[in-house]
Amino acid sequence: MFLSEGGATVTGTALGPAAFVVRVGGDIDHESAPLLQEALDTAGRSGAGHTVIDLSGVGFADSTVLHVLLGAEREHRGAGRELSIAGPFGATVRRLFEITGTAHHFRLRPSLDAALAGSPDTTPDRRDRREDPPAGGAV
C-alpha cells in the first residue's frame, strides 16, 4: 500500500503473519495523519502479531500524529498485539515525545531492523531497572 498527501508519504508492507511495517516520510500533520491511521487500520486487518511504525523519514510531526500513535498503541495492547515505533528519530519527533511526556507509552526502537529483531527498548521508562547499578556504586 502507498498513500500520499502533500509532502507526506505512508507505505504499508506485510512481512507474512509475523509483522506489518508502516513507513512514514515527510511532514505529518492534521491533514496527512489520516494516511497513517489508514495504514494502521490495514495493519490491524492483516492479523500480524507485530506492527512497526518507521518514523525515521519524518521531518515534522504534530500532536495529531501523537493522537493516532496513542490510539494505535491502545488498540494493539487490547488485541494482544505488539506495536513498536522505529527511528532513528529526527529532532521534531524526539521533541514531540519529550515535551508531551508520552515516550513511556511506546516501545521505541533505534531502527527498523532493531524493531523487527526485537531489540531492547530505548525508552528510558521501560528499561529493565535490574541493570541499573545499586545506589552508591556497591555491587
Rank of each mutant, 00 (worst) to 15 (best):
T11H: 03
G12C: 05
G12M: 05
T13S: 13
A14H: 06
G16T: 10
A19R: 03
A19T: 06
V21G: 04
R23T: 12
G26E: 11
D27H: 05
D27L: 08
D27N: 10
D27T: 04
I28Y: 02
I28A: 10
I28S: 03
D29H: 09
D29C: 10
D29T: 02
S32H: 07
A33N: 11
A33C: 11
A33D: 07
L36F: 03
Q37I: 03
E38K: 12
A39L: 01
A39G: 01
L40Q: 12
L40Y: 11
D41M: 03
D41V: 12
D41G: 13
T42C: 07
T42W: 08
A43L: 03
G44V: 03
G44Q: 13
R45V: 00
R45A: 15
G47F: 05
G47H: 04
G49E: 10
G49I: 00
G49N: 02
G49W: 03
G49H: 03
G49P: 05
H50M: 09
V52H: 00
V52D: 10
D54Q: 12
S56M: 08
S56Y: 13
S56T: 11
G57L: 07
G57M: 02
V58P: 06
V58H: 00
V58Y: 07
V58L: 07
G59Y: 05
A61Y: 04
T64Y: 06
V65R: 09
V65T: 08
V65S: 09
L66V: 13
V68Q: 11
L69N: 03
L69E: 09
L70R: 14
A72F: 07
A72Y: 11
A72W: 04
E73T: 04
E73P: 04
R74E: 14
E75G: 13
E75D: 15
H76P: 01
R77H: 13
G78I: 10
A79M: 13
A79W: 09
R81E: 06
G87P: 14
P88M: 05
F89H: 09
G90W: 01
A91H: 12
A91T: 12
T92N: 15
V93C: 11
R94L: 14
R94E: 15
R94G: 14
R94Y: 10
R95K: 11
L96G: 08
L96Y: 01
F97G: 01
E98A: 08
I99W: 04
T100A: 03
T100C: 06
G101R: 06
T102H: 06
A103V: 07
H104E: 14
H105A: 15
H105R: 15
H105P: 04
F106W: 09
R107H: 15
